[in-house]
């Protein structure tokens, strides 16, 4: 009886944490949508950006996949050998829940890969792709 209660409470807490994470992520997406002036984002465009090769950025990082691999569900590795947890939300529910962190890494990585900051629409498409993964 007690075990059952603990399991039920545990499951409820996990569920609640998931709901909270989703709400935080939704808020980030909604803010990008309002900045971009669009009502929804395009996951396919996000996929194309993730897999694309670019020449405007820094030599060592021509693509997101340089560090993240071409599988969003897999772990990646920084150029210095440190493991990067998967980008796909299904594998890593904590992803894209902290607005400051999201902005920090878009700023850095868009500059490293593209040689410029990403637009709100590009960021939203990218998140839509990772949320679908």
């Amino acid at each position: 009886m007690k075990t059952k209660l603990i399991i039920t409470t545990g499951a409820a807490l996990l569920f609640a944490a998931g709901v909270l994470a989703n709400a935080q992520r939704d808020a980030i997406v909604a803010s990008l949508a309002s900045q971009a002036g669009v009502s929804s984002f395009n996951a396919d465009a996000g996929r194309a950006m993730f897999l694309g090769n670019f020449t405007g950025g820094k030599e060592a990082t021509p693509s997101c996949t340089s560090c993240h691999t071409n599988n969003p569900q897999a772990q990646g590795r920084t150029r210095v050998g440190k493991v990067i947890e998967p980008m796909a939300v299904s594998r890593n529910p904590e992803r894209f829940t902290d607005p400051e962190k999201v902005e920090k890494w878009f700023r850095r990585n868009c500059t490293s890969v593209l040689g410029r900051e990403c637009t709100a629409e590009e960021k939203g498409n990218f998140l839509a792709f990772m949320i679908s993964q």
Partner: peptide, 12 residues
């Protein structure tokens, strides 16, 4: 930090 060994590692 914006060119940190070939990567952008800029901070606030």
């Amino acid at each position: 930090l914006s060119d940190h060994f070939g990567e952008d590692a800029s901070l606030g």
